[in-house]
Protein backbone atom coordinates (compact mmCIF):
# COMPACT_ATOMS: atom_id res chain seq x y z
CA UNK A 1 0.00 0.00 0.00
CA UNK A 2 1.22 3.47 -0.82
CA UNK A 3 0.77 6.14 1.82
CA UNK A 4 1.54 9.86 1.86
CA UNK A 5 2.77 11.62 5.00
CA UNK A 6 2.82 15.39 5.37
CA UNK A 7 3.52 17.81 8.16
CA UNK A 8 3.83 21.46 9.18
CA UNK A 9 1.30 23.08 6.85
CA UNK A 10 1.26 26.27 8.90
CA UNK A 11 -1.81 27.91 7.36
CA UNK A 12 -0.41 27.76 3.83
CA UNK A 13 -3.43 26.79 1.75
CA UNK A 14 -1.70 27.19 -1.62
CA UNK A 15 1.01 24.75 -0.65
CA UNK A 16 -1.48 22.26 0.79
CA UNK A 17 -3.49 22.23 -2.44
CA UNK A 18 -0.39 21.63 -4.51
CA UNK A 19 0.70 18.75 -2.28
CA UNK A 20 -2.77 17.18 -2.27
CA UNK A 21 -2.90 17.16 -6.03
CA UNK A 22 0.60 15.63 -6.23
CA UNK A 23 -0.57 12.93 -3.79
CA UNK A 24 -3.53 12.33 -6.11
CA UNK A 25 -1.22 11.97 -9.09
CA UNK A 26 0.77 9.34 -7.23
CA UNK A 27 -2.36 7.45 -6.24
CA UNK A 28 -1.52 7.20 -2.55
CA UNK A 29 -4.28 5.25 -0.79
CA UNK A 30 -3.98 6.90 2.57
CA UNK A 31 -2.72 10.25 3.83
CA UNK A 32 -1.36 10.94 7.31
CA UNK A 33 -0.67 14.40 8.68
CA UNK A 34 1.79 15.14 11.50
CA UNK A 35 0.27 18.41 12.71
CA UNK A 36 1.14 22.09 12.85
CA UNK A 37 -1.81 22.96 10.68
CA UNK A 38 -1.71 26.58 11.84
CA UNK A 39 0.84 29.28 12.69
CA UNK A 40 3.04 31.54 10.50
CA UNK A 41 0.70 31.33 7.50
CA UNK A 42 -2.36 33.31 6.43
CA UNK A 43 -5.08 30.62 6.07
CA UNK A 44 -5.38 28.58 9.28
CA UNK A 45 -9.13 27.99 9.02
CA UNK A 46 -9.07 26.96 5.37
CA UNK A 47 -6.24 24.49 6.00
CA UNK A 48 -8.02 22.86 8.95
CA UNK A 49 -11.26 22.70 6.98
CA UNK A 50 -9.52 20.92 4.11
CA UNK A 51 -7.81 18.38 6.39
CA UNK A 52 -11.13 17.69 8.15
CA UNK A 53 -13.14 17.37 4.98
CA UNK A 54 -10.68 14.79 3.65
CA UNK A 55 -10.75 12.95 6.96
CA UNK A 56 -6.96 12.79 7.14
CA UNK A 57 -5.68 11.17 10.36
CA UNK A 58 -3.66 13.94 12.02
CA UNK A 59 -1.43 14.29 15.10
CA UNK A 60 -1.32 17.43 17.16
CA UNK A 61 1.62 19.72 16.52
CA UNK A 62 3.19 22.25 18.88
CA UNK A 63 1.44 25.19 17.21
CA UNK A 64 -1.88 23.36 17.36
CA UNK A 65 -1.32 22.75 21.07
CA UNK A 66 -0.40 26.38 21.71
CA UNK A 67 -3.58 27.59 20.01
CA UNK A 68 -5.65 25.23 22.13
CA UNK A 69 -3.86 25.60 25.46
CA UNK A 70 -2.78 29.20 25.17
CA UNK A 71 0.75 30.33 24.77
CA UNK A 72 2.55 29.47 27.97
CA UNK A 73 5.68 28.17 26.43
CA UNK A 74 8.63 27.98 28.76
CA UNK A 75 11.55 30.30 27.97
CA UNK A 76 13.55 27.51 26.47
CA UNK A 77 11.08 27.13 23.60
CA UNK A 78 12.43 30.36 22.20
CA UNK A 79 16.09 30.38 21.36
CA UNK A 80 16.15 34.14 20.90
CA UNK A 81 14.31 37.30 21.85
CA UNK A 82 13.55 37.89 18.20
CA UNK A 83 12.08 34.42 17.76
CA UNK A 84 9.99 35.03 20.85
CA UNK A 85 8.50 38.32 19.73
CA UNK A 86 7.81 36.99 16.23
CA UNK A 87 6.37 33.76 17.56
CA UNK A 88 4.10 35.67 19.88
CA UNK A 89 2.96 37.99 17.09
CA UNK A 90 2.10 35.04 14.86
CA UNK A 91 0.39 33.28 17.73
CA UNK A 92 -1.73 36.31 18.62
CA UNK A 93 -2.79 36.77 14.99
CA UNK A 94 -3.68 33.09 14.56
CA UNK A 95 -5.46 32.96 17.89
CA UNK A 96 -7.62 35.87 16.92
CA UNK A 97 -8.40 34.54 13.42
CA UNK A 98 -9.37 30.96 14.03
CA UNK A 99 -12.98 29.85 14.34
CA UNK A 100 -14.24 28.01 17.42
CA UNK A 101 -14.74 24.78 15.44
CA UNK A 102 -11.14 24.97 14.21
CA UNK A 103 -9.95 25.25 17.81
CA UNK A 104 -12.16 22.34 18.87
CA UNK A 105 -10.79 20.22 16.07
CA UNK A 106 -7.18 21.01 17.01
CA UNK A 107 -7.95 20.24 20.68
CA UNK A 108 -9.02 16.67 20.04
CA UNK A 109 -6.05 15.67 17.89
CA UNK A 110 -4.02 12.75 19.28
CA UNK A 111 -0.30 13.06 20.02
CA UNK A 112 0.51 9.74 18.41
CA UNK A 113 -1.09 7.65 15.70
CA UNK A 114 -0.18 3.99 15.33
CA UNK A 115 -0.88 1.97 12.23
CA UNK A 116 0.55 -1.54 11.84
CA UNK A 117 4.32 -1.23 12.32
CA UNK A 118 4.30 2.54 11.81
CA UNK A 119 4.01 5.36 14.32
CA UNK A 120 3.24 8.97 13.53
CA UNK A 121 4.18 11.92 15.76
CA UNK A 122 4.76 15.63 15.29
CA UNK A 123 8.17 16.13 16.95
CA UNK A 124 9.12 12.91 18.70
CA UNK A 125 7.42 10.28 20.86
CA UNK A 126 8.60 12.42 23.81
CA UNK A 127 6.49 15.37 22.76
CA UNK A 128 5.62 17.89 20.12
CA UNK A 129 8.55 20.14 20.97
CA UNK A 130 11.44 17.74 20.57
CA UNK A 131 13.40 17.95 17.34
CA UNK A 132 14.58 14.68 15.87
CA UNK A 133 17.31 16.10 13.69
CA UNK A 134 19.00 13.77 11.19
CA UNK A 135 22.26 13.86 13.15
CA UNK A 136 20.85 13.18 16.59
CA UNK A 137 22.85 10.47 18.39
CA UNK A 138 22.03 7.11 16.77
CA UNK A 139 21.22 5.45 20.09
CA UNK A 140 18.90 8.30 21.00
CA UNK A 141 17.22 8.04 17.61
CA UNK A 142 16.77 4.29 18.08
CA UNK A 143 15.40 4.79 21.57
CA UNK A 144 12.74 7.11 20.18
CA UNK A 145 11.68 4.60 17.51
CA UNK A 146 11.70 1.65 19.91
CA UNK A 147 9.69 3.53 22.51
CA UNK A 148 6.79 3.52 20.04
CA UNK A 149 6.97 -0.23 19.50
CA UNK A 150 7.06 0.39 15.74
CA UNK A 151 9.64 -0.19 13.06
CA UNK A 152 9.11 3.09 11.26
CA UNK A 153 8.66 6.42 12.98
CA UNK A 154 7.25 9.30 10.96
CA UNK A 155 7.92 12.77 12.35
CA UNK A 156 8.03 16.40 11.24
CA UNK A 157 8.72 19.60 13.21
CA UNK A 158 12.19 20.28 11.73
CA UNK A 159 10.76 21.33 8.33
CA UNK A 160 13.58 19.55 6.52
CA UNK A 161 12.73 16.08 5.20
CA UNK A 162 15.02 13.08 5.60
CA UNK A 163 15.03 9.31 5.85
CA UNK A 164 17.33 7.74 8.41
CA UNK A 165 17.98 4.02 8.50
CA UNK A 166 19.41 2.64 11.72
CA UNK A 167 20.95 -0.75 11.17
CA UNK A 168 23.37 -3.34 12.62
CA UNK A 169 22.76 -2.22 16.15
CA UNK A 170 24.62 -4.23 18.77
CA UNK A 171 24.91 -3.50 22.44
CA UNK A 172 26.68 -5.62 25.00
CA UNK A 173 25.08 -5.27 28.41
CA UNK A 174 26.35 -6.55 31.77
CA UNK A 175 24.21 -6.22 34.86
CA UNK A 176 25.26 -6.97 38.41
CA UNK A 177 22.38 -6.91 40.80
CA UNK A 178 22.46 -7.35 44.54
CA UNK A 179 21.05 -10.78 45.37
CA UNK A 180 20.85 -11.88 41.70
CA UNK A 181 23.13 -13.68 39.30
CA UNK A 182 25.14 -11.41 37.00
CA UNK A 183 23.55 -11.10 33.58
CA UNK A 184 25.35 -10.64 30.26
CA UNK A 185 23.46 -10.22 27.04
CA UNK A 186 23.59 -8.79 23.54
CA UNK A 187 20.87 -6.37 22.54
CA UNK A 188 20.39 -6.48 18.78
CA UNK A 189 17.22 -4.75 17.60
CA UNK A 190 16.33 -5.16 13.93
CA UNK A 191 16.60 -2.31 11.44
CA UNK A 192 14.54 0.77 12.27
CA UNK A 193 13.74 3.94 10.37
CA UNK A 194 12.91 7.55 11.04
CA UNK A 195 11.14 9.36 8.22
CA UNK A 196 10.84 13.11 8.50
CA UNK A 197 8.08 14.41 6.24
CA UNK A 198 9.51 17.94 5.91
CA UNK A 199 7.06 20.82 5.67
CA UNK A 200 4.21 21.59 3.32
CA UNK A 201 3.75 25.22 4.23
CA UNK A 202 7.00 26.55 5.68
CA UNK A 203 9.90 24.69 4.11
CA UNK A 204 13.38 25.27 5.46
CA UNK A 205 15.55 23.30 3.09
CA UNK A 206 16.74 26.38 1.23
CA UNK A 207 14.05 26.48 -1.48
CA UNK A 208 10.48 27.74 -1.22
CA UNK A 209 8.87 24.51 -2.47
CA UNK A 210 6.60 22.28 -0.36
CA UNK A 211 7.93 18.91 0.81
CA UNK A 212 6.26 15.67 1.92
CA UNK A 213 6.97 11.92 1.66
CA UNK A 214 5.47 8.88 -0.03
CA UNK A 215 5.96 5.47 1.58
CA UNK A 216 5.26 2.08 0.11
CA UNK A 217 4.48 -0.34 2.93
CA UNK A 218 5.17 -3.34 0.66
CA UNK A 219 8.74 -2.59 -0.38
CA UNK A 220 9.40 0.06 2.34
CA UNK A 221 10.50 2.54 -0.29
CA UNK A 222 10.44 6.18 0.84
CA UNK A 223 10.24 8.98 -1.72
CA UNK A 224 10.83 12.55 -0.64
CA UNK A 225 8.71 14.86 -2.80
CA UNK A 226 9.45 18.52 -3.45
CA UNK A 227 6.52 20.38 -4.98
CA UNK A 228 6.57 23.80 -6.59
CA UNK A 229 3.57 26.01 -6.00
CA UNK A 230 2.68 29.68 -6.14
CA UNK A 231 4.44 30.72 -2.94
CA UNK A 232 4.32 34.37 -4.01
CA UNK A 233 0.57 34.24 -3.47
CA UNK A 234 1.04 33.01 0.10
CA UNK A 235 3.70 35.68 0.66
CA UNK A 236 1.32 38.38 -0.58
CA UNK A 237 -1.43 37.06 1.71
CA UNK A 238 0.94 37.03 4.72
CA UNK A 239 1.61 40.73 4.22
CA UNK A 240 -1.97 41.62 3.33
CA UNK A 241 -3.36 39.87 6.42
CA UNK A 242 -1.00 41.76 8.72
CA UNK A 243 1.32 38.94 9.77
CA UNK A 244 4.97 39.94 10.31
CA UNK A 245 6.29 40.55 6.75
CA UNK A 246 9.55 38.80 7.60
CA UNK A 247 7.60 35.50 7.45
CA UNK A 248 6.89 36.20 3.77
CA UNK A 249 10.53 36.88 3.09
CA UNK A 250 11.67 33.75 4.87
CA UNK A 251 9.01 31.63 3.12
CA UNK A 252 10.22 32.88 -0.26
CA UNK A 253 13.80 31.92 0.67
CA UNK A 254 12.88 28.52 2.13
CA UNK A 255 14.98 29.67 5.03
CA UNK A 256 15.20 28.17 8.39
CA UNK A 257 13.45 30.41 10.84
CA UNK A 258 15.60 30.48 13.93
CA UNK A 259 13.10 29.09 16.33
CA UNK A 260 14.88 25.92 17.19
CA UNK A 261 15.81 25.60 20.81
CA UNK A 262 19.51 25.14 21.54
CA UNK A 263 19.08 21.75 23.05
CA UNK A 264 17.29 19.59 20.49
CA UNK A 265 16.61 16.83 23.01
CA UNK A 266 15.01 19.22 25.44
CA UNK A 267 11.49 18.22 26.30
CA UNK A 268 9.27 21.07 27.23
CA UNK A 269 7.32 20.16 30.35
CA UNK A 270 4.07 22.02 30.53
Amino acid sequence: MKIAVMSCIHGNYEALNAVLSDIDDHKAEQIFCLGDLVGYGPHPNAVVEMIRSLDIPTCQGCWDEDIVEGLNACDCSYPSLLAESRGKAAHAWTDQQIHPETREYLAQLPLTIKEKNMSFVHGSPNGQHEYLLPDVNAFTALERVLSTGSNVLFCGHTHVPYVRTLDQTKMLVKVEQQGQKDAHYQFTPSVRRIVNAGSVGEPRHGRPHATYVLYDTDDQLVTIREIEYDYQKTCADIIEKGLPPIFAWRLAQGLEFAERADDPSHVCER
Partner: peptide
Protein backbone atom coordinates in the same frame (compact mmCIF):
# COMPACT_ATOMS: atom_id res chain seq x y z
CA UNK B 1 22.01 42.47 22.50
CA UNK B 2 20.76 38.90 22.55
CA UNK B 3 23.36 36.94 20.53
CA UNK B 4 20.93 34.50 18.89
CA UNK B 5 18.69 37.39 17.85
CA UNK B 6 21.47 39.43 16.29
CA UNK B 7 22.60 36.31 14.41
CA UNK B 8 19.15 36.01 12.90
CA UNK B 9 18.88 39.72 12.13
CA UNK B 10 22.38 39.82 10.65
CA UNK B 11 21.61 36.86 8.37
CA UNK B 12 18.36 38.47 7.23
CA UNK B 13 19.96 41.86 6.77
CA UNK B 14 22.87 40.63 4.71
CA UNK B 15 20.66 38.36 2.59
CA UNK B 16 18.35 41.15 1.58
CA UNK B 17 15.31 40.96 3.85
Amino acid sequence: IDPASIDTLWAELTQGA
